[in-house]
Write a protein that binds this DNA or RNA. Structure first.
Lengths: 224, 224
DNA sequence: CCAAATTTTTAAATTCTCCCAAATATCGTT
DNA sequence: AACGATATTTGGGAGAATTTAAAAATTTGG
């Protein structure tokens, strides 16, 4: 009943509705790299299935049912990412692509077994929270590194999992969720940020820094 | 280029061409539960891609390229089955359904990691041989239990992985690949077979017994 | 508050995989 | 060697997911 394409739409809508409600079809079109027409078509279908509220020209909002479906897929995705990283040592810059395909095909039973093998984990390898089986998700307080002031110490909460190359680079400088860093300097006009990680200093481009979410050191949540 | 549907066709053709060459489209239609017309269509496409030799009314035969693609998918399938059974304790009657979906989406890299985690295994949980990375597969000498004579002892080599209910039953009587059994009696007219497994005796229906492949005890190959 | 620019939807077309019904080829008998 | 039964292909069509191009609605700016 719910096709793989539909699942991808719901996942994309979930991502966008964190910053905009309702989600305009144009935002979806850009995010998914589909034509606006495709988006309208599919949103109508999803509204038919009572997964979305859809008002022409107004964009879409989740129904409760739609939100639960989206969270279930996201749970699949993040559990798979963590499982691959932990159990099979898949590099953290590759788990996203792999999970992107597997999330649509694993059974609930297999998901449960992976969750159990991992000890019901709370976060994926990029620091994103894993929804619970019952569809609850906890948002960790955090802001993007580019919004922080120089001179303070932070803990990395989460990094964007979609850019494999970026992840590989962040790995080489040791910037993982849980890592502590000192923001030494922020160059003006969206320039690079100077970070102190352990004993070493690194310059991180503005675009890269935008996809790093941090929390002030003192109020930091502990995670594995 | 090669769609999931095409992969399913190649897998089915591999299965059938073990007993018939060339494979008639009707056999494929029956095995895959598609109409004969669908089969003809797809076989033409696969022939276009140089994966099959297709002669109208004569059926299909693999090209070398087609055979390699088929073996790669089968390797995916069987490695996944074994991995799920061993690493995540998925019951052996469920691994087939799970692998059927996952086989189409895992990367070669992930496959390698699973193979490595399992120590480059030779057989899946049902005793079927796993093709090597380079596409070689070893056929273990075996015959179906219904063709054997009463009074002899055999080792189970392989059981059909497609019937979940049957596998569950075989599990309850302890009939796994590697299990030793004494064929006590074969009722005539395709009647049930009486087996001695360990201390217990069981009656196995003729249809069920047909999907159990065995080898004489003395010449049996060792497998984990 | 109207016209231009933008966004969104509608409509028609495409590709893929499948189906059904009809036409055609093959095969076993006699 | 021709007939009937069976197997196979052809042709046409349907549904899903996408596209492009054109039409319609909304927003924006003077």
């Amino acid at each position: 009943m719910i096709s793989q394409a539909m699942e991808d739409y719901l996942k994309a809508i979930y991502k966008l509705q964190q910053t905009m409600k309702p989600v305009p079809t144009s935002a979806l079109a850009e995010h998914m790299n589909f034509s606006p027409a495709s988006i309208t078509n599919m949103c109508k279908k999803l509204a038919e299935l009572n997964l979305l509220h859809y008002e022409p020209y107004q964009g879409v909002v989740f129904t409760e049912a739609g939100l639960q479906v989206a969270l279930e897929i996201i749970r699949h995705h993040r559990l798979i990412e963590l499982y691959l990283a932990k159990a099979l040592n898949v590099p953290w810059d590759q788990v996203h692509a792999e999970a992107e395909k597997m999330e649509h095909v694993i059974s609930e039973d297999l998901e449960d077994r992976m969750a159990e093998a991992l000890g019901d984990p709370q976060f994926d390898p990029h620091g994103a929270p894993i929804p619970s089986r019952s569809g609850k998700i906890f948002r960790v307080e955090s802001e993007t590194l580019t919004d922080m002031d120089a001179g303070n110490t932070f803990v990395v909460v989460e990094v964007n999992d979609e850019d494999s190359e970026l992840l590989r680079y962040l790995g080489t400088i040791g910037l993982y969720p849980g890592t502590e860093l000192l923001l030494v300097e922020c160059a003006p006009f969206d320039g690079p940020l100077t970070l102190q990680i352990g004993e070493e200093q690194h310059n991180l481009g503005y675009q890269a820094a935008k996809s790093v979410l941090v929390a002030p050191k003192d109020t930091s949540q502990e995670q594995l």
